[in-house]
Amino acid sequence: MTALAHAAVDPGADPAAPAPRATKRSWTAYVLLLPGALWLGVFFLLPLVQLASVSLQSRYPGFPGYYYRDVNLDNYASALTDYAPHFARSFLYAGLATLLAFVVAYPLAYAMAFKAGRWRNLMMICVIAPFFTSFILRTFAWSQILADEGWVAGTLNFLHLLPGGNIINTPVAVIAGLTYNFLPFMVLPIYASLERADPRVIEAGGDLYANGFTTFRTVTLPMSMPGVLAGTLLTFIPAAGDFVNMELLGPQRGKMVGNVINDQFLAIPGGYPVAAALSFTLMAAILVMVFLYVRRFGTEELV
Protein backbone atom coordinates (compact mmCIF):
# COMPACT_ATOMS: atom_id res chain seq x y z
CA MET A 1 0.00 0.00 0.00
CA THR A 2 2.84 2.41 0.75
CA ALA A 3 4.34 1.62 -2.61
CA LEU A 4 1.05 2.43 -4.25
CA ALA A 5 0.68 5.72 -2.43
CA HIS A 6 4.26 6.61 -3.09
CA ALA A 7 4.09 5.80 -6.77
CA ALA A 8 0.82 7.64 -7.15
CA VAL A 9 2.18 10.77 -5.55
CA ASP A 10 5.61 10.74 -7.15
CA PRO A 11 4.83 12.25 -10.59
CA GLY A 12 3.34 15.27 -8.91
CA ALA A 13 6.28 15.71 -6.54
CA ASP A 14 8.17 17.89 -8.98
CA PRO A 15 5.69 19.36 -11.43
CA ALA A 16 8.38 21.25 -13.33
CA ALA A 17 10.32 18.19 -14.41
CA PRO A 18 8.65 15.57 -16.57
CA ALA A 19 8.23 12.29 -14.74
CA PRO A 20 10.97 9.81 -15.58
CA ARG A 21 9.83 6.91 -17.75
CA ALA A 22 10.36 4.17 -15.21
CA THR A 23 8.21 5.92 -12.58
CA LYS A 24 5.47 6.49 -15.07
CA ARG A 25 5.39 2.86 -16.09
CA SER A 26 5.22 1.49 -12.54
CA TRP A 27 2.44 3.98 -11.82
CA THR A 28 0.51 2.59 -14.81
CA ALA A 29 0.99 -0.91 -13.50
CA TYR A 30 -0.62 -0.02 -10.19
CA VAL A 31 -3.56 1.65 -11.89
CA LEU A 32 -4.10 -1.46 -13.97
CA LEU A 33 -3.93 -3.61 -10.84
CA LEU A 34 -6.47 -1.49 -9.02
CA PRO A 35 -9.75 -3.01 -10.31
CA GLY A 36 -8.48 -6.52 -9.63
CA ALA A 37 -7.23 -5.59 -6.18
CA LEU A 38 -10.53 -3.89 -5.34
CA TRP A 39 -12.49 -6.87 -6.57
CA LEU A 40 -10.38 -9.25 -4.51
CA GLY A 41 -10.62 -7.02 -1.46
CA VAL A 42 -14.40 -6.58 -1.57
CA PHE A 43 -15.50 -9.97 -2.78
CA PHE A 44 -12.83 -12.28 -1.39
CA LEU A 45 -10.89 -10.80 1.49
CA LEU A 46 -13.83 -9.13 3.22
CA PRO A 47 -16.11 -12.20 3.23
CA LEU A 48 -13.16 -14.30 4.31
CA VAL A 49 -12.54 -12.13 7.35
CA GLN A 50 -16.26 -12.17 8.10
CA LEU A 51 -16.33 -15.96 7.79
CA ALA A 52 -13.27 -16.30 10.03
CA SER A 53 -14.94 -14.20 12.69
CA VAL A 54 -18.16 -16.24 12.46
CA SER A 55 -16.25 -19.49 12.73
CA LEU A 56 -15.08 -18.45 16.20
CA GLN A 57 -18.44 -17.26 17.54
CA SER A 58 -20.62 -19.02 20.12
CA ARG A 59 -24.36 -19.56 20.17
CA TYR A 60 -26.58 -17.85 22.67
CA PRO A 61 -27.94 -20.74 24.70
CA GLY A 62 -31.70 -20.87 24.28
CA PHE A 63 -31.75 -18.49 21.34
CA PRO A 64 -31.15 -20.56 18.19
CA GLY A 65 -29.76 -18.48 15.42
CA TYR A 66 -28.11 -15.89 17.69
CA TYR A 67 -24.38 -15.68 18.34
CA TYR A 68 -21.96 -13.57 20.24
CA ARG A 69 -18.40 -12.62 19.39
CA ASP A 70 -16.01 -15.09 20.95
CA VAL A 71 -12.91 -17.18 20.39
CA ASN A 72 -14.62 -20.52 20.43
CA LEU A 73 -12.39 -23.24 18.96
CA ASP A 74 -15.03 -25.90 19.67
CA ASN A 75 -16.45 -25.20 16.24
CA TYR A 76 -13.18 -26.42 14.75
CA ALA A 77 -12.97 -29.37 17.09
CA SER A 78 -16.44 -30.37 15.97
CA ALA A 79 -15.53 -29.90 12.32
CA LEU A 80 -12.50 -32.15 12.68
CA THR A 81 -14.08 -34.91 14.75
CA ASP A 82 -17.82 -35.09 14.05
CA TYR A 83 -17.37 -34.47 10.36
CA ALA A 84 -14.10 -36.28 9.65
CA PRO A 85 -15.90 -38.98 7.60
CA HIS A 86 -17.49 -36.29 5.44
CA PHE A 87 -14.12 -34.78 4.72
CA ALA A 88 -12.70 -38.17 3.89
CA ARG A 89 -15.61 -38.88 1.53
CA SER A 90 -15.24 -35.49 -0.15
CA PHE A 91 -11.57 -36.03 -0.85
CA LEU A 92 -12.05 -39.62 -1.93
CA TYR A 93 -14.88 -38.87 -4.34
CA ALA A 94 -13.19 -35.73 -5.67
CA GLY A 95 -9.93 -37.67 -6.07
CA LEU A 96 -11.63 -40.50 -7.94
CA ALA A 97 -13.54 -38.05 -10.13
CA THR A 98 -10.28 -36.23 -10.90
CA LEU A 99 -8.61 -39.48 -11.84
CA LEU A 100 -11.51 -40.52 -14.06
CA ALA A 101 -11.71 -37.10 -15.66
CA PHE A 102 -7.99 -37.31 -16.41
CA VAL A 103 -8.37 -40.74 -17.98
CA VAL A 104 -11.17 -39.49 -20.22
CA ALA A 105 -9.76 -36.02 -20.88
CA TYR A 106 -6.20 -36.84 -21.86
CA PRO A 107 -7.00 -38.95 -24.93
CA LEU A 108 -9.66 -36.43 -25.89
CA ALA A 109 -7.28 -33.49 -25.58
CA TYR A 110 -4.59 -35.47 -27.40
CA ALA A 111 -6.93 -36.24 -30.27
CA MET A 112 -8.00 -32.61 -30.46
CA ALA A 113 -4.42 -31.36 -30.49
CA PHE A 114 -2.85 -33.86 -32.88
CA LYS A 115 -5.41 -35.90 -34.76
CA ALA A 116 -8.53 -33.79 -35.22
CA GLY A 117 -7.39 -31.75 -38.21
CA ARG A 118 -10.36 -29.75 -39.45
CA TRP A 119 -12.65 -31.27 -36.80
CA ARG A 120 -10.68 -29.57 -34.08
CA ASN A 121 -12.94 -26.53 -33.73
CA LEU A 122 -16.06 -28.65 -33.70
CA MET A 123 -14.61 -30.83 -30.94
CA MET A 124 -13.70 -27.71 -29.01
CA ILE A 125 -17.29 -26.48 -29.26
CA CYS A 126 -18.55 -29.87 -28.08
CA VAL A 127 -16.30 -29.66 -25.01
CA ILE A 128 -17.53 -26.17 -24.16
CA ALA A 129 -21.19 -26.67 -25.16
CA PRO A 130 -22.36 -27.98 -21.74
CA PHE A 131 -21.55 -24.56 -20.27
CA PHE A 132 -24.49 -23.15 -22.21
CA THR A 133 -26.90 -24.84 -19.81
CA SER A 134 -26.91 -24.56 -16.07
CA PHE A 135 -24.87 -26.87 -13.94
CA ILE A 136 -27.93 -27.79 -11.86
CA LEU A 137 -30.05 -28.59 -14.90
CA ARG A 138 -27.41 -30.87 -16.34
CA THR A 139 -27.05 -32.65 -13.02
CA PHE A 140 -30.84 -33.09 -12.89
CA ALA A 141 -30.66 -34.60 -16.35
CA TRP A 142 -28.11 -37.07 -15.05
CA SER A 143 -30.35 -38.00 -12.15
CA GLN A 144 -32.88 -39.10 -14.77
CA ILE A 145 -30.32 -40.84 -16.98
CA LEU A 146 -29.06 -42.84 -14.00
CA ALA A 147 -32.49 -43.43 -12.45
CA ASP A 148 -33.73 -46.97 -11.82
CA GLU A 149 -36.23 -46.61 -14.66
CA GLY A 150 -33.56 -45.17 -16.98
CA TRP A 151 -31.96 -47.18 -19.74
CA VAL A 152 -28.48 -47.25 -18.16
CA ALA A 153 -29.61 -49.01 -14.99
CA GLY A 154 -32.17 -51.00 -17.02
CA THR A 155 -29.58 -52.38 -19.41
CA LEU A 156 -27.09 -53.17 -16.66
CA ASN A 157 -29.76 -54.89 -14.59
CA PHE A 158 -30.91 -56.85 -17.59
CA LEU A 159 -27.34 -58.09 -18.06
CA HIS A 160 -27.04 -58.74 -14.31
CA LEU A 161 -24.05 -56.41 -14.16
CA LEU A 162 -25.39 -54.19 -11.40
CA PRO A 163 -24.89 -55.88 -8.01
CA GLY A 164 -26.81 -53.29 -5.95
CA GLY A 165 -29.64 -53.01 -8.44
CA ASN A 166 -29.41 -49.26 -8.88
CA ILE A 167 -26.96 -46.49 -9.74
CA ILE A 168 -28.84 -43.43 -8.62
CA ASN A 169 -28.42 -42.58 -4.94
CA THR A 170 -25.06 -44.35 -4.74
CA PRO A 171 -21.53 -42.93 -4.47
CA VAL A 172 -20.94 -44.22 -8.01
CA ALA A 173 -23.54 -41.78 -9.33
CA VAL A 174 -21.91 -38.95 -7.37
CA ILE A 175 -18.47 -39.72 -8.75
CA ALA A 176 -19.91 -40.02 -12.26
CA GLY A 177 -21.64 -36.68 -11.86
CA LEU A 178 -18.51 -34.97 -10.56
CA THR A 179 -16.45 -36.46 -13.39
CA TYR A 180 -18.94 -35.29 -15.97
CA ASN A 181 -19.41 -31.82 -14.57
CA PHE A 182 -15.73 -30.97 -14.26
CA LEU A 183 -14.46 -32.70 -17.39
CA PRO A 184 -14.06 -29.50 -19.47
CA PHE A 185 -11.81 -28.05 -16.77
CA MET A 186 -9.53 -31.03 -17.28
CA VAL A 187 -9.72 -31.11 -21.08
CA LEU A 188 -9.02 -27.46 -21.78
CA PRO A 189 -5.70 -26.96 -19.95
CA ILE A 190 -4.36 -30.30 -21.18
CA TYR A 191 -5.39 -29.42 -24.70
CA ALA A 192 -3.75 -26.01 -24.39
CA SER A 193 -0.44 -27.47 -23.27
CA LEU A 194 -0.45 -30.19 -25.93
CA GLU A 195 -1.42 -27.75 -28.62
CA ARG A 196 1.43 -25.47 -27.62
CA ALA A 197 4.00 -28.26 -27.77
CA ASP A 198 6.31 -27.94 -30.78
CA PRO A 199 5.60 -30.94 -33.06
CA ARG A 200 9.29 -30.94 -33.97
CA VAL A 201 10.17 -31.71 -30.35
CA ILE A 202 7.91 -34.74 -30.44
CA GLU A 203 9.45 -35.77 -33.75
CA ALA A 204 12.86 -35.39 -32.16
CA GLY A 205 11.87 -38.20 -29.78
CA GLY A 206 11.32 -40.49 -32.76
CA ASP A 207 14.52 -39.30 -34.37
CA LEU A 208 16.40 -40.23 -31.17
CA TYR A 209 15.29 -43.87 -31.18
CA ALA A 210 12.13 -43.64 -29.08
CA ASN A 211 9.18 -45.51 -30.56
CA GLY A 212 5.67 -44.12 -30.43
CA PHE A 213 4.87 -45.17 -26.90
CA THR A 214 8.28 -44.24 -25.49
CA THR A 215 8.07 -40.85 -27.15
CA PHE A 216 4.70 -40.33 -25.52
CA ARG A 217 5.99 -41.39 -22.11
CA THR A 218 9.27 -39.48 -22.20
CA VAL A 219 8.42 -36.42 -24.29
CA THR A 220 4.75 -35.70 -24.92
CA LEU A 221 3.39 -36.48 -21.47
CA PRO A 222 6.11 -34.59 -19.55
CA MET A 223 5.68 -31.62 -21.88
CA SER A 224 1.95 -31.55 -21.12
CA MET A 225 2.45 -31.82 -17.36
CA PRO A 226 1.71 -28.14 -16.72
CA GLY A 227 -1.68 -28.70 -18.35
CA VAL A 228 -2.28 -31.91 -16.41
CA LEU A 229 -1.40 -30.13 -13.19
CA ALA A 230 -3.74 -27.23 -13.93
CA GLY A 231 -6.50 -29.58 -15.03
CA THR A 232 -6.32 -31.77 -11.94
CA LEU A 233 -6.37 -28.73 -9.68
CA LEU A 234 -9.28 -27.15 -11.54
CA THR A 235 -11.18 -30.42 -11.17
CA PHE A 236 -10.22 -31.52 -7.67
CA ILE A 237 -10.64 -28.22 -5.86
CA PRO A 238 -14.25 -27.49 -6.89
CA ALA A 239 -15.18 -31.18 -6.76
CA ALA A 240 -14.00 -31.46 -3.15
CA GLY A 241 -16.27 -28.61 -2.12
CA ASP A 242 -19.21 -29.58 -4.33
CA PHE A 243 -22.59 -30.48 -2.83
CA VAL A 244 -24.92 -30.39 -5.85
CA ASN A 245 -23.88 -33.77 -7.25
CA MET A 246 -24.31 -35.44 -3.86
CA GLU A 247 -27.60 -33.66 -3.33
CA LEU A 248 -29.10 -34.71 -6.65
CA LEU A 249 -27.39 -38.02 -7.37
CA GLY A 250 -26.15 -39.29 -4.01
CA PRO A 251 -27.49 -41.43 -1.18
CA GLN A 252 -29.41 -40.07 1.82
CA ARG A 253 -26.69 -41.01 4.26
CA GLY A 254 -22.94 -40.64 3.80
CA LYS A 255 -22.88 -37.06 2.51
CA MET A 256 -19.90 -34.98 1.53
CA VAL A 257 -18.59 -32.02 3.49
CA GLY A 258 -20.14 -29.56 1.06
CA ASN A 259 -23.59 -30.88 1.97
CA VAL A 260 -22.88 -30.50 5.67
CA ILE A 261 -21.81 -26.92 5.18
CA ASN A 262 -24.87 -26.28 3.08
CA ASP A 263 -27.16 -27.80 5.73
CA GLN A 264 -25.47 -26.02 8.61
CA PHE A 265 -25.81 -22.70 6.87
CA LEU A 266 -29.32 -23.07 5.51
CA ALA A 267 -31.20 -25.79 7.37
CA ILE A 268 -29.94 -26.03 10.93
CA PRO A 269 -30.71 -23.05 13.17
CA GLY A 270 -27.55 -21.77 14.74
CA GLY A 271 -25.34 -23.73 12.41
CA TYR A 272 -23.41 -20.71 11.11
CA PRO A 273 -20.30 -20.99 13.30
CA VAL A 274 -19.86 -24.70 12.61
CA ALA A 275 -20.48 -24.15 8.90
CA ALA A 276 -17.87 -21.40 8.87
CA ALA A 277 -15.39 -23.58 10.75
CA LEU A 278 -16.04 -26.43 8.30
CA SER A 279 -15.46 -24.07 5.38
CA PHE A 280 -12.16 -22.92 6.80
CA THR A 281 -11.03 -26.42 7.57
CA LEU A 282 -11.90 -27.50 4.03
CA MET A 283 -10.03 -24.57 2.58
CA ALA A 284 -6.96 -25.25 4.71
CA ALA A 285 -7.00 -28.95 3.89
CA ILE A 286 -7.24 -28.24 0.15
CA LEU A 287 -4.46 -25.66 0.36
CA VAL A 288 -2.16 -28.14 2.08
CA MET A 289 -2.96 -30.88 -0.42
CA VAL A 290 -2.49 -28.56 -3.40
CA PHE A 291 0.77 -27.32 -1.97
CA LEU A 292 2.13 -30.85 -1.52
CA TYR A 293 0.85 -31.88 -4.93
CA VAL A 294 2.41 -28.94 -6.73
CA ARG A 295 5.65 -29.46 -4.84
CA ARG A 296 5.72 -33.05 -5.98
CA PHE A 297 4.57 -32.75 -9.62
CA GLY A 298 4.91 -29.07 -10.40
CA THR A 299 7.44 -27.63 -12.76
CA GLU A 300 8.92 -24.17 -12.58
CA GLU A 301 7.02 -23.15 -15.73
CA LEU A 302 3.59 -23.82 -14.20
CA VAL A 303 0.77 -23.63 -16.79
Binding site: A204, G205, G206, L208, Y209, N211
Partner: peptide, 21 residues
Amino acid sequence: SRPYERPVNTVFQSYALFPHL
Protein backbone atom coordinates in the same frame (compact mmCIF):
# COMPACT_ATOMS: atom_id res chain seq x y z
CA SER B 1 11.13 -47.69 -41.89
CA ARG B 2 10.37 -45.47 -38.90
CA PRO B 3 12.70 -42.66 -37.76
CA TYR B 4 13.72 -44.59 -34.64
CA GLU B 5 14.77 -47.55 -36.74
CA ARG B 6 17.28 -45.55 -38.80
CA PRO B 7 20.93 -44.85 -37.99
CA VAL B 8 20.25 -41.23 -38.83
CA ASN B 9 19.92 -38.22 -36.54
CA THR B 10 18.67 -34.73 -37.18
CA VAL B 11 19.61 -31.29 -35.93
CA PHE B 12 16.28 -29.55 -36.38
CA GLN B 13 15.89 -26.08 -37.83
CA SER B 14 14.37 -24.86 -34.57
CA TYR B 15 16.69 -27.13 -32.48
CA ALA B 16 13.64 -28.86 -30.94
CA LEU B 17 15.36 -29.50 -27.61
CA PHE B 18 13.23 -31.22 -24.97
CA PRO B 19 12.10 -28.29 -22.82
CA HIS B 20 11.41 -30.42 -19.74
CA LEU B 21 14.87 -32.02 -19.65
